[in-house]
């Protein structure tokens, strides 16, 4: 039996309704991502990049289609199971870092691990230290986020995403709030992680960042218009 795709979106549609208007944020998306891939998702503002990432991260539901993660149809799971998948299989990296100001670096990284009941405090500690070492932030464990530079904050956020050993890292404009030097540092870190076997899906509108990915996917008006391993003819996609 062949190994299932890590992410398998089949004919996913998501529509936003306003009073007299329906807007297709995702329109018949077919997308498969295998373990170990580094995929960038790009496109103009409002094309549905972030919505696609939210759907993949189980932060948003969709109207039609199927979503399989590692062979399991996760879109059909209940709230608790979805939370479990988010916690164990997915690691999020946000544009705005989203560190909690009232927690120090260690606690921020530890936070998703506290949502698991199968880890002892000692195990959590080891996993946090390991994740922080991976992003070279082991020496800043007791610092508050406000004491760190933007690049350092994003590295902590990446450590938080990595700490639970997720199957896939979902990064939403990870360099959007950083200067070019810090942006380069973060992209190098993601490349290193990919080199170590991590699967990464990154939304970006920055072509320089997109260059780091091995596979480039483009969206336009909620449709997939470009993919080096396209799952459907481009023409069909355009015609909807």
């Amino acid at each position: 039996m062949s190994k299932p795709h890590l992410i398998d979106l089949q004919a996913v549609k998501k529509v936003f309704y306003t009073e007299e208007l329906e807007t297709w944020a995702l329109n018949n998306i077919h997308l498969r991502i295998d373990e170990g891939e580094y995929v960038s998702v790009s496109g103009p503002s409002g094309c549905g990049k972030s919505t696609l990432l939210s759907v993949m991260g189980l932060l948003s539901s969709f109207n039609e289609g199927h979503y399989f993660l590692n062979g399991t149809e996760v879109s059909a799971l209940g709230e608790v199971e979805q939370a479990r998948v988010r916690n164990r299989d997915i690691g999020f990296i946000f544009q705005a870092f989203n560190l909690i100001g009232e927690m120090n670096v260690f606690e921020n990284v530890e936070l998703p691990l506290t949502f698991r009941d199968d880890l002892s405090k000692k195990q959590r500690h080891a996993m946090v230290v390991e994740a922080l070492e991976q992003v070279d932030m082991g020496h800043r464990q007791k610092h508050a986020p406000s004491e760190l530079s933007g690049g350092q904050q994003q590295r902590v956020a990446i450590a938080r995403a990595l700490a639970g050993h997720p199957k896939v890292l979902l990064a939403d404009e990870p360099t959007g709030n950083l200067d070019s030097a810090n942006a380069d540092m973060v992209m190098e870190l993601l490349s290193k992680l990919h080199g170590n076997g991590s699967t990464i899906v990154m939304v970006t509108h920055d072509p320089r960042s997109a260059e780091h990915a091995k596979r480039k996917v483009s969206l336009f008006d909620g449709k997939l218009v470009d993919d080096c391993r396209q799952v459907q003819p481009m023409l069909a996609a355009i015609e909807g």
């Binding site: 932060l59 608790v80 988010r86 909690i100 949502f115």
Partner: peptide, 16 residues
């Protein structure tokens, strides 16, 4: 609200 949304994104259940 942002912090709570983040917790949700990081895998916190609604009960938690």
């Amino acid at each position: 609200s942002r912090e709570l949304a983040l917790r949700s994104a990081l895998g916190s259940t609604r009960r938690r």
